[in-house]
Design a protein around this nucleic acid. Sequence first.
DNA 1: GCGACAG
DNA 2: ATCTTGTCGC
Length: 223
Amino acid sequence: MDLAALRAQQLELASRIVREDQPITTTPSVIAGADVGFEQGGEVTRAAIVLLSYPSLELIEHQVARIATTMPYIPGFLSFREYPALLAAWDQLSQKPELLFVDGHGISHPRRLGVASHFGMLVDVPTIGVAKKRLCGKFEPLSDEPGALAPLMDKGEQLAWVWRSKQRCNPLFVSTGHRVSIDTALAWVQRCTKGYRLPEPTRWADAVASGRPAFRRWQEIPR
DNA sequence: GCGACAG
DNA sequence: ATCTTGTCGC
């Protein structure tokens, strides 16, 4: 793999990311969550996409795709490692969502093209990036109260909101993926958070992608 | 030159 | 991300 070429590709794609809200924004009735996990020591990439109804936030569909891993993890190039599997899972959906949450950064990336932005652009759906760790940029320490907020700044521009979704939990990094402003991204993440650190779409995608016990229970003991 | 570094 | 049980704290 040629990192210089991938870096150039990121700059090109990043220039096409829409950081503003859509002129016509209607309330979504279906919101998706996407996440990626690995198996067999990393040789297999497993992507999961879940569909939740809104505003009830109930799981209505989940798809999992497994493909041979094509690239190693290199900070700043995560999307090239994860998007092939995500696209495979996306194609398996019986219906497409109106809003998409992706586990990872959106524009809060060195070249402004985190996995949420890259994948969001590929499927061309309003997308939000929800990351659990900082990749770049700086922010002031948050107070301990849940709801504490601080802008993630880099080179003079705000790239995300650092938001403490729950008490005694590390904050989340919420950013524009594609076709959603940073403020609107935060508003949707807040509306979809129900008492846990992660918003429901990413929480379920995470559970499905990594075979969490909570999900297996729901999966193996239905009805 | 010395750290930092999504998942 | 993943390897992994119990355990400390609210």
